[in-house]
Simulated assay, not measured.
Amino acid sequence: MTTTTPAFTRTPRALRVPRKGISPTMLRIEALRQLRNPYTLAFTLAMPVVMYILFGASAAYGSQSAGHGNVSFYVMISMAAYGTAVAMSSLTSLAATESKQGWGRQLAMTPLGTVGYALTKLITSVTFAALALVAVFTAGVLTGAKADDAWRWVAAAAIILGIGLMYGLFGLGVGLFFNADSAAALASISMTFFAFFGNVFMPLDGVMLSIARFTPLYGFVALSRWPLTDGVLTTGQADPLWMPLLNVLVWLTLFSVLVVAGVRRSRTRR
Score class of each variant (00 low, 15 high):
residue 177 F to K: 15
residue 182 S to N: 12
residue 70 N to H: 13
residue 151 W to E: 07
residue 22 I to K: 00
residue 27 L to I: 07
residue 94 L to V: 12
residue 210 S to Y: 15
residue 98 E to I: 03
residue 228 L to T: 07
residue 20 K to S: 12
residue 223 L to T: 13
residue 39 Y to R: 12
residue 176 L to N: 03
residue 149 D to W: 08
residue 72 S to I: 01
residue 102 G to F: 06
residue 33 R to Q: 04
residue 225 R to E: 11
residue 99 S to Y: 01
residue 167 Y to G: 03
residue 186 L to E: 11
residue 263 V to Y: 09
residue 221 V to M: 12
residue 263 V to S: 03
residue 35 L to A: 07
residue 74 Y to L: 12
residue 263 V to C: 13
residue 97 T to A: 05
residue 140 G to S: 07
residue 89 S to Y: 01
residue 262 G to H: 01
residue 52 Y to F: 12
residue 56 G to W: 00
residue 83 G to Q: 02
residue 122 L to Q: 05
residue 87 A to M: 10
residue 8 F to T: 14
residue 229 T to W: 08
residue 243 M to C: 04
residue 74 Y to S: 04
residue 236 G to P: 03
residue 175 G to A: 10
residue 13 R to Y: 13
residue 199 N to G: 04
residue 209 L to V: 09
residue 203 P to A: 12
residue 201 F to C: 04
residue 76 M to W: 02
residue 186 L to C: 15
residue 118 A to N: 03
residue 47 M to W: 15
residue 46 A to K: 07
residue 22 I to P: 00
residue 136 V to K: 01
residue 173 G to D: 06
residue 142 L to E: 15
residue 96 A to L: 06
residue 150 A to E: 14
residue 206 G to M: 05
residue 138 T to V: 07
residue 12 P to K: 08
residue 11 T to I: 13
residue 145 A to E: 01
residue 145 A to W: 00
residue 97 T to G: 02
residue 84 T to A: 13
residue 144 G to N: 03
residue 149 D to C: 04
residue 154 V to T: 14
residue 64 Q to H: 04
residue 241 L to D: 14
residue 142 L to W: 13
residue 220 F to S: 03
residue 210 S to A: 15
residue 257 V to W: 13
residue 201 F to Q: 11
residue 108 A to W: 07
residue 219 G to W: 01
residue 42 A to G: 06
residue 244 P to R: 11
residue 50 V to P: 10
residue 61 Y to F: 08
residue 21 G to R: 05
residue 91 L to I: 05
residue 31 A to R: 01
residue 228 L to I: 14
residue 196 F to A: 11
residue 75 V to S: 01
residue 204 L to Q: 05
residue 242 W to C: 07
residue 227 P to N: 10
residue 216 P to W: 15
residue 73 F to L: 04
residue 198 G to M: 12
residue 187 A to L: 15
residue 187 A to D: 10
residue 207 V to D: 13
residue 130 A to Y: 05
residue 36 R to H: 12
residue 214 F to I: 11
residue 73 F to P: 00
residue 124 T to H: 01
residue 40 T to R: 01
residue 184 A to M: 12
residue 119 L to W: 02
residue 174 V to S: 02
residue 181 D to F: 14
residue 184 A to L: 10
residue 209 L to H: 10
residue 195 A to C: 05
residue 220 F to K: 03
residue 243 M to L: 09
residue 204 L to I: 09
residue 233 L to V: 11
residue 146 K to S: 03
residue 173 G to Y: 00
residue 245 L to E: 07
residue 199 N to Q: 04
residue 218 Y to W: 13
residue 112 L to M: 08
residue 120 T to A: 01
residue 112 L to C: 02
residue 138 T to L: 06
residue 162 G to H: 11
residue 112 L to F: 02
residue 27 L to N: 00
residue 225 R to H: 14
residue 80 A to H: 02
